[in-house]
Structures are given as C-alpha cells and as structure tokens.
Amino acid sequence: MSNKPKKLIEKGKRLDGRKVDELRPIKIEVGILKRADGSCYMELGGSKVIAAVYGPRAVHPRHLQEATQVIIRYRYDMASFSVKERKRPGPDRRSIEISKVSREALEPVILKEYFPRSVIDIFVEILQADAGTRTVGINASSVALADAGIPMRGIVSSCAVGKVDGEVVLDLTGEEDNYGEADMPIAMTQEGKITLLQMDGNFTKEEFTRAIELAKKGCKEIYEIQRNALISKYEGVNNV
C-alpha cells in the first residue's frame, strides 16, 4: 500500500481533525429490532454495528446446557459489504477469535446463575468497518443485553488505543490502524475493571500506562453515552 499519508498527526491534529485523546462521533439507538429481546445499533465514526440479544431461552443442542448457569453464545460477523474488498461471508479465523474474546469480555458482568439450563445468544453484525469494530460490537451488545432485561453487575464499555507517529492516541481510524505502530482494544466495567485487553504492535512501559489511562477516559465517555441512550428510551418516566 503506497498511498500512505506522510504524516498521521500534524500540529496535534489527526487526519480527521481530532485531538489525540478524542473519540470519533458516537450514535446509539436502543431497541431497533422488533423480533429480538434486546437490540442496539451503534456508530463510532465509520464503524457501524447492529447487536441483537435473544434469551434467556432453551438451549439447542441440549448437550451444551449447564445445570447451574446460563451459557452465553456470541457471534461476531462481518457483512460481505462492510469492507472495501468484498469479504467472503461466514465465520473465519479472525471472526471466531473476536467472538471468543468479546464473549469473555461480557461474561463477567452477567449474573449467570439466575438462569440455569438456558442460553443467551448475542449476534453482532458489522455493517461497515473502519477499525475498532470489536469494541463497537461489545459496546452495542452490552446495551442490547440491558435492553433485553438481563441482570448484570454493570455495563461494559470498550474502546481502542494505539500509537500513531510515535504518539499514544485514542480510538484509531482504519488508516491510523494500518499505518500506525500499535493498536490495543480494551473493554472495562464502569469501575474500571478490565475484561478485554489485546495488543497488536509495540508500546514502551510508559506508553502502555498512558494508553491504559487514555482508554479509561474513552470508556468513561462511552459509558455516559450508553447510559443516556438507555435512559432516553423511556424519557417520560423520569419526569413523573
């Protein structure tokens, strides 16, 4: 790829005009799918995602069920039109791995012992991808889980941090991800307990600490937006 821009950060501003510690514009809509028990549409800049939650419901095939707690199935799937070059539809190595880590990012907050012998299915469809799709998927499904009335210890928020032109930045875009030096998606609860941490690239020890701090700030902002999206669905109730 030769169309690499010369500089990804110029005078403290990034290619899309953001500061280094700024998130892309976020849009969240709750309960957009009628047939799902809980659903959420979320946009983070160019990344657009739909999450649907079904359950708790009976487990099929039956041998997967657990006698003491609910099991959780998470499916991350990219639409064939979500990227520039057509993506071959269906699960592949990458999406299977993302499904696993995303499931594990949400599992610790779900009060699983409330629903023995049942399953919660989470489906995440990436409609348009521009870096950070797994974090958007986690954010959206965590809102969809709350919308489905599933008991949880809290809401999980997630964002990516990375290194671009030697600087630690929040919420990378596709270009920054491709030409940058590091990309690190993080998910955490509102108290700051980390449930997902992956890294591609290199950070020094100092950069890593800075990156975690930045991610905490980003997750906090996302948490407020998630919260507002849920509350505003029944806005009238608050004024009673």
């Binding site: 028990d37 809980g38 359950g55 708790p56 419901r57 009060l111 629903f115 709350a146 919308d147 489905a148 009335g149 599933i150 008991p151 949880m152 210890r153 809290g154 849920l230 029944y234 109730v237």
Partner: peptide, 23 residues
Amino acid sequence: YASIYGILDRKELRVIPLFGKYM
C-alpha cells in the same frame, strides 16, 4: 446496586423490570 434496567422503587429498594423473560 441495580442489576437490571428498569424503574427504581425507592420505598422497597427494588427495580421494576421493563423488559425480560417471564420467570
């Protein structure tokens, strides 16, 4: 802490669900 999304009943300190499956 609240474990579900719903309406808070301050008197009895419980959350009235708005969604969810019948148990």
